[in-house]
Design a protein around this nucleic acid. Sequence first.
DNA 1: ACTAAGCGGAAGATCGTCGTCCAGTTAGGA
DNA 2: TCCTAACTGGACGACGATCTTCCGCTTAGT
Lengths: 178, 178
Amino acid sequence: MRADARRNRDRIVEAARAVVAERGIEAPMELIARRAGVGVGTVYRRFPDRHALIAAMAEQYIHEIADALTKAEESERGAWAAVRSFVLWCGDQGRGALAAALADLPQELFEEMREFVTVRANMVERLEALVAAAQERGEMRADVGADDLMTLLNIFTCHPTPRGEHYLRVMLDGIATG
Amino acid sequence: MRADARRNRDRIVEAARAVVAERGIEAPMELIARRAGVGVGTVYRRFPDRHALIAAMAEQYIHEIADALTKAEESERGAWAAVRSFVLWCGDQGRGALAAALADLPQELFEEMREFVTVRANMVERLEALVAAAQERGEMRADVGADDLMTLLNIFTCHPTPRGEHYLRVMLDGIATG
DNA sequence: ACTAAGCGGAAGATCGTCGTCCAGTTAGGA
DNA sequence: TCCTAACTGGACGACGATCTTCCGCTTAGT
């Protein structure tokens, strides 16, 4: 692949993430192309259809999240601190908006996204372990699980508001054992 | 107006509320007509365009909310209890979904909806008073205001999930002074 | 039983997005 | 420098979803 083509490909994936986070999974291809500074034709040459683009995007995205979780795990300030900082990290930068957009992806699409599915499953497992540890130590209420955390993240970040991060903190205060 | 026409009119407004709550403010008119058990033609005779229908719907809706707030105020179990029960009432039955849908209404539309605007303004004022009282008594954290409560309601109810009410309760625990 | 009011839904208009195609441009090797 | 294969942008026709109108049939109510 020619160097300029490579550069454009990367720009397109990045633009897709931003646009999908803002406008949802059905954002027009032209918006993505514009944001990347290329024409629609260029997008379609690199990615035969929007599915391919979404898959590329999702893969990059899930790896970032998984890395953040690893960092949180390694911080060694306790399970609840790890959960908390991971949630706040996810809430930041509208990452969750992308997650929300991916969440209502048609089921059949996931079958072309093996890597994404695998990495995500692994991540959920690790988050569950962290939550269980925090609960065992009595640092976190027992009626909220890892899946609830992910749902809540989706809810908050998919609905952008100026005080989103503040709300997330209030929510975390409600989740922490008082 | 003939009795059957009146009946249909009411049914249409009710159907519109349900459909808009589920599918957003841009839900197809045909869906609303179907849900009301009438043809699209009937909808358009009663309401010249979707704006008129939305206005009728919004008016009915805001009165219900205002009534609920009145009930909460009258319960006399304290300001925080009133705020809490009002928020939970709103969260119930997907009322917020409708609020969310109304929230991203084009600005110019509100100018044809005087009644709605007036009643809503009055309601917000009363909620603010309740919040101030709860905060003064130290029952509620000071960094969350009436507008935040409304935003949070929108956020939660516009994004329907099986555990929505539970999340709202957790959130309220975070908002209450611990 | 008569008629004004009401009814449903087919049909045509409109709109936004998709994905293709091709004439023109450019990277980078010889 | 020159050459060409690779790449580029965006106009364009197709398409599906939704809007709104219109009209022949039905019905409430006198």
